[in-house]
Design a protein around this nucleic acid. Structure first.
Lengths: 197, 197
DNA sequence: CCCTATCTGTAATCGTGACTACAGAAGTAC
DNA sequence: GTACTTCTGTAGTCACGATTACAGATAGGG
């Protein structure tokens, strides 16, 4: 049951992924509609018809990016075993994610928008960051409740350290830090949370 | 011995500081010439005559910002006593710097430019970051040479952790982290470098 | 007081980038 | 095949932002 009218001449999902790549590499403001139409191989009217305006496209791209990140987080945290090992795997996984050849450097959510500009975008970006940070806090509180944290380690403070590390690794990745360096930092940070026993 | 011609009607130093404030708050791209002339209280021709173009003004602002940061670093590291205490003071000082009321949040050098755009500016920003990172590495190596590091702490890895923390605190500050949270993170990180003896 | 040099305010200019009008193309329903 | 609906390519429109032309203002040197 194809919808009425001339069918779209491109794959919307593929196009969204190409837009993700473009925004991730160049940021929101620096990625022009012309650049997008060039990369997606479509004309401006097609882009506007399929995604709305530039802001809407960006927000949709952002959701795609975030969903993938959360999926990684879910999978990594769901591995059975000590919670400490899962968190170490998250940090190492992020270190590797930030240093994957062929993928833009650093986390898109941290680096794509100027400090001022489109308030709706900044709000959404802040919301996504806040959500991950909150997730880390919940994990650390759960770990504390389960007696998996040393007595002198505050769960909220540890969560803040982990989040700070994620943000910092993202920036270092953008400045060209290689995989080994980032992995080293991830491991060093985990010494703050010594294994119990 | 005033130079020939009509004298400039504003204080160049004050104007530069106002421009610093503007760029720091809004970033390079989002700060328009109109915004600058409004804040500095001068017309476009005066701005162009005094500073060159927008890029040149930004680069000069950047130098001003960086010089002040290095001055803070020099002073804090020069305090006599254990190197570990000086580094702790640096982290705490940065945590406080990033959460000072009336001052834009976060580090200007990390947040003002889009991932793509003016290559000259990006290069300069990366250069300044690299310079601070290098400074931390030198300090940690000196600490290692002086026997102030535990045997199982690699100086370069520790420097990387410190730098990651600075970058991460800057981002968290932009997202509204308060002074107590940042100070807490600074203190937590220092547990990676336990006092010797 | 007149000349020269430099600054200042207003009002262009000029390019760029988001967005859209319009004419044609390509499907479905009958 | 005809009517209807939705896409696509070209070529605008429109606003905004960096930069500058130009006329007037203000200083020093004679």
């Amino acid at each position: 049951m194809a919808p009425l009218g001339r069918p779209r001449g491109f794959d919307r999902t593929v196009a969204l992924d190409l837009a993700l790549q473009a925004f991730w590499e160049q940021g929101f403001e620096s990625t022009s509609i012309a650049e997008l139409t060039r990369r997606l191989g479509i004309g401006p009217p097609s882009l506007y018809a399929a995604f709305g305006d530039k802001r809407a496209l960006f927000l949709e791209v952002l959701d795609l990016y975030y969903d993938r990140f959360v999926q990684f987080l879910d999978q990594t945290l769901a591995v059975p075993g000590a919670r400490r090992d899962a968190i170490a795997a998250v940090l190492l996984g992020i270190a590797r994610f930030y240093s994957t050849p062929g993928v833009p450097r650093g986390c898109m959510v941290n680096t794509v928008a100027a400090p001022t500009g489109e308030p709706a975008l900044l709000a959404r970006l802040a919301e996504l960051r806040s959500s991950v940070q909150e997730r880390l806090r919940r994990e650390m509180r759960a770990a504390a409740d389960a007696g998996e944290l040393p007595r002198d380690v505050e769960p909220d403070a540890l969560a803040a350290v982990l989040w700070t590390t994620v943000l910092g690794m993202s920036m270092r990745s953008r400045d060209g830090a290689d995989r080994a360096e980032l992995e080293s930092t991830a491991r060093s940070i985990m010494t703050i949370w010594p294994p119990i026993r």
